[in-house]
């Protein structure tokens, strides 16, 4: 699992599944501005996913385009991290997930921008600016909720506790990849630590670290997500409008 195809596919799947989950908030967010914000972030993730999956398809050379990769693979063939496929939960869970994801994607895309692969470098240079907005947005809400009322603090802490174990998988060593994610852990900790502290939240202890997403071994949540995302394309193959 160390070909450029696997790497582009994994990053593309992270963005695609994150986009699908964030899109579930559309028309359901706590306020209008947040609805627009989450839809915008979903759109950014989808944009990155399209570029990465298109490139993955070209690297594979088997004639699969972005649609074939997004719509015609089963859960065991997806390579996204488990964090992005977890259900949205309440708003605090969504913000905890977004904070961890963006605090990983920002240094990842920044490092990609300087890598030798020209296509990945272009995608990284483009996507990192968008990731910076996502990370700021998530951090703002984590601070506001964590250092808010007793109830918002309780729920934000619960959300961080629940999703923290899934952050470890993001930094699993990947020798030979254009950017080894293991080298990004320092950036992540340097950003997330102070945000949690400022939000009066306790950084969970490191222990249980579920993984398997990069090998196609997912939680039970992914196949339900894919069923919804893929049903139209599978029912009407090749349909356009």
């Amino acid at each position: 699992m160390s070909s450029p195809f696997d790497f582009a596919l994994a990053l593309g799947d992270d963005a695609l599944v994150a986009a699908q989950r964030l899109g579930e908030w559309t028309s359901r967010a706590p306020e209008m501005e947040e609805d627009v914000a989450l839809a915008n972030i979903a759109l950014d993730q989808l944009g990155a996913a399209r570029l990465l999956l298109t490139y993955a398809g070209e690297l594979e050379g088997a004639g699969r385009d972005e649609d074939a990769l997004a719509y015609l693979r089963d859960d065991r063939e997806f390579r996204n991290c488990l964090l992005v496929e977890l259900p949205n939960g309440d708003f605090a869970v969504t913000m905890a997930k977004l904070l961890f994801l963006s605090a990983y994607q920002l240094p990842l895309y920044s490092a990609l921008a300087g890598c030798a692969d020209e296509r990945l470098a272009a995608i990284g240079a483009k996507a990192r600016k968008e990731s910076a907005y996502h990370r700021d947005h998530a951090a703002l809400w984590v601070r506001r909720l964590g250092d808010g009322t007793a109830e918002s603090h309780r729920r934000m802490q619960a959300a961080v506790d629940q999703t923290w174990p899934y952050a470890h998988e993001l930094f699993a060593p990947w020798p030979g990849a254009p950017v080894d994610p293991a080298g990004l852990r320092g950036d992540f900790d340097a950003y997330v630590g102070p945000v949690l502290a400022e939000a009066t939240l306790t950084r969970p202890a490191d222990g249980w670290a579920p993984a398997g997403g990069r090998d196609g071994v997912h939680t039970e949540h992914l196949s339900y997500l894919l069923a919804e995302m893929q049903v139209l394309h599978r029912a009407h193959p090749g349909a356009t409008w």
Binding site: E33, E34, V36, A37, N40, I41, L43, D44, D136, H137
Partner: peptide, 13 residues
């Protein structure tokens, strides 16, 4: 600033 995200991807409210 009311919201960091606006009516299109490139705008804030």
């Amino acid at each position: 600033q009311v919201s960091r995200f606006g009516s299109t991807a490139c705008k804030a409210l």
